[in-house]
Design a binder for these strands. Structure first.
Lengths: 237, 237
DNA sequence: GCGCACTACGTACGCTGTACGTAACTAGGA
DNA sequence: TCCTAGTTACGTACAGCGTACGTAGTGCGC
């Protein structure tokens, strides 16, 4: 009965299997795969211990043999999809390589929209996160600066990418599958915003909304943002 | 009984008070203040409809007269603390002003650690968010570019600040008030990380950890990040 | 002054994470 | 070789959550 309750630490630090007892029926990879599938299909809220266990065909509480807390299940999920991060031989142009990294991160988050919600700094050192970080550092080899600075670059880039994609996804989600119609929702928002702006209290916001506002090319805007971000780390001359 | 269920839209679009019926016992500000106080004291998880209602001294379901969904309560909270954003007369140096804005945002998130979790792009157009945005745009008046670009700047800055502070807070939280001791937790993490790095699969990560690693000045690192970010928007010459 | 929109709130439902007790099983140490 | 300790499996149970809904009381607008 010892060690039944939560122990210190990252789930990655505890071995998946210790010799004693019956063979576990599943691997962490199995569990993560099921959870990811559920989240992809029904959103993060569809990932409950009961649901995952049901999908695996085992009792709810059996899951706790593999995953001490639900938070750890989330860690498994993040690590599992992080495996999709492609790793290539850096080409010598760190800006180009990092643009590609950022693009892949964005694509990953589009494939798994729940990822942005789990992109807390806590999930930082899973095996595939290490692999990803190592790859980023490899891409940054041509950049002559400290590793601390490179880590900061990666951190900032990830932060911006996450927040950008989160905005993208929220916007897309709002115009889809709401209990009321998207047009109605939008009309209400526009009307409200218009009424606020019309008070004259926000002249610059008014000007901003009045600006052209053609349909935005989200891809181009993303590339631009990333480029600007990387520019900031170009060694000064 | 009409309109009992959720209606389209932002909570800000519906009037706080329509003429009919008994006077409401509370204002939205009252409710937001209570929720913020609870979150400050006990974390975001301490904010439940029951708990807030109890603190207000009313029945749980009465809250739903003021706040159609819990998500809207969150919106009220974000707006309430956004009122703490100081607004000043821009001094003509947009970089200096934006650095100050970023610093205030960071301070705000330190005062209300739950804020980073609610900083979803959804909560974008509350009254105080508009006030904040207008102020940012005012600070950016000297920067000659489109409003679209300025909005992107503000968005990127917020994204980076949020992710930076989230990391700060998560790190601080991890070394505090855990069910097991912080030393133990850290020891486990270091041991795990060391074991991974020691495999030789992550040579650059190993180098990064080997690097100096004096105690990091979080304030300086933050200032540096913001400066770099703003540099990216400096008009090219 | 009448009616209706609004406030107030208790009850109830389905769901969540997970503590705990119990039974079956197996590998390591004697 | 057997024994036992550690592990897996899983049902039950509990406290808490968001919120749908019914009902009763209130007071403004017509």
């Amino acid at each position: 009965m010892a060690g039944r309750t939560a122990e210190p630490g990252v789930i990655w630090a505890r071995p998946e299997r210790t010799g004693r007892g019956p063979k576990p029926a599943f691997t962490r990879a199995d569990i993560a795969a099921v959870a990811v599938r559920l989240a992809d299909a029904g959103g993060l809220d569809a990932v409950s211990m009961r649901h995952v266990a049901g999908e695996l065909g085992c009792g709810t509480m059996s899951l706790y043999n593999y995953v001490p807390r639900k938070e750890d299940l989330y860690e498994l999920m993040v690590d599992a999809v992080s495996a999709e991060h492609e790793v290539w031989e850096p080409g010598g142009d760190w800006r180009a390589d990092m643009r590609r990294v950022a693009g892949q991160t964005r694509a990953l988050m589009h494939r798994h929209p729940w990822l942005t919600r789990l992109m807390s700094p806590i999930y930082g050192f899973s095996p595939n996160a290490l692999r990803y970080l190592e790859h980023c550092l490899a891409c940054l080899d041509p950049l002559e600066t400290t590793y601390g600075m490179k880590m900061q670059l990666v951190g900032m880039l990830n932060g911006c990418v996450t927040s950008y994609v989160a905005t993208e996804l929220a916007t897309a989600e709002r115009t889809r599958s709401l209990p009321w119609s998207a047009e109605e929702e939008n009309a209400v928002r526009i009307a409200y915003l218009g009424s606020q702006v019309a008070t004259g209290a926000y002249p610059r916001m008014a000007a901003a909304f009045a600006e052209d506002q053609g349909p935005i090319d989200l891809d181009a805007a993303f590339e631009l943002m990333v480029s600007r971000m990387l520019d900031a780390f170009e060694p000064r001359n």
